[in-house]
Amino acid sequence: MKIFLNGEAKEIIDSCTVMDLLTEMDIVGQRLAVEVNEEIVSKSRHADYSFNEDDKVEIVHAIGGG
């Protein structure tokens, strides 16, 4: 199944959850926020939320800025 992660196409397994994706990226526990199709997926839902084909997923964090 294909999703778009931070603007790039990515193949994931069916029934992949947000937590599965974060685990694969090795960023579990970091301060970040996840959005799917412009809707926030809160931390409490990461383990249960599974992606659908062509989901637009954004994972963001805080960086230096003024």
Binding site: L5, N6, G7, E8, M25, D26, I27, Q30, L32, A33, E58, I59, V60, H61, A62, I63, G64, G65, G66
Partner: peptide, 14 residues
């Protein structure tokens, strides 16, 4: 202290 919100770099050194 202000911060900006940006995409997590895919493949960034964890």
């Amino acid at each position: 202290v202000t911060v900006a919100i940006r995409r997590t770099n895919i493949g960034q050194n964890p």
